[in-house]
């Protein structure tokens, strides 16, 4: 499934500080998320799919705005999965003119922090094996490729199941410093992560 080339605009110029990151705040954000995801991802999702995620875990979804325009979103959930409290990244979209500027990394980092603080032991998602941007983004955040899923997508493409395991008991003492250091050296990223249950 080739994505639409509806966006012919060149990359937009902006300062990183001009991007506003907002936690999902209610029904007025739902159409924004739906439009972004539907536009960029080939999988069809009914409105109940979106409601499932944002009604049950609104604190795990974030939107990125530039001058009032919604340019990116991440949608997640968490719950018990075979004796593990697991976070799941269901959808991640940044529209093409805003890619490569760290927006997706920031969106995902925020949701992962909330999942970690909520007691998740690990975070998972699936991504197409051909999606180099997504694989690089999640790789930098510490995800490993735990499994390869044969013909996961109906277009015949395989998927990797990516996994991030949090340190057990409490955080390593050095981690907060690493996190601070990391944020000041953010690198380019972009990508999207369709999901399947």
């Amino acid at each position: 499934m080739d994505r639409d080339e509806a966006e012919t605009m060149e990359n937009v110029e902006f300062d990183a500080s001009e991007i506003e990151y907002v936690s999902y705040g209610g029904e007025h954000h739902l159409p924004l998320v739906m439009n972004l995801v539907d536009q960029e991802l080939s999988e069809p999702y009914s409105i109940f799919t979106y409601r499932y995620f944002v009604y049950l875990w609104p604190q795990l979804s974030f939107l990125a705005f530039h001058k009032g325009k919604c340019v990116g979103t991440v949608v997640c959930k968490m719950g018990e999965h075979r004796n593990t409290f697991r976070g799941y990244i269901a959808m991640l979209v940044v529209i093409k003119p805003y890619r490569g500027r760290g927006i997706a990394t920031e969106l995902v980092t925020r949701s992962i922090k909330v999942m970690m603080e909520s007691g998740c032991e690990e975070v998972t998602l699936e991504a197409e094996v051909t999606n180099k941007g997504a694989l690089a983004l999640y790789g930098r955040l510490g995800f490993i490729r735990a499994k390869r899923l044969f013909h996961y997508y109906l277009n015949g493409v395989d998927a990797f199941r990516l996994k991030l395991l949090f340190p057990r008991s409490e955080l390593h003492p050095s981690l907060p410093m690493m996190a601070d250091k990391y944020e000041s050296h953010m690198q380019s990223d972009h990508g999207d992560a369709p999901f399947k249950e």
């Binding site: 980092t109 992962i112 970690m116 790789g139 930098r140 955040l141 510490g142 490993i144 991030l164 395991l165 949090f166 340190p167 390593h172 981690l175 690493m178 996190a179 250091k181 990391y182 944020e183």
Partner: peptide, 11 residues
């Protein structure tokens, strides 16, 4: 590799 969330041990 320096992840903000975990270490080589978890990997």
């Amino acid at each position: 590799l320096q992840s903000p969330f975990n270490t080589e041990h978890e990997i």
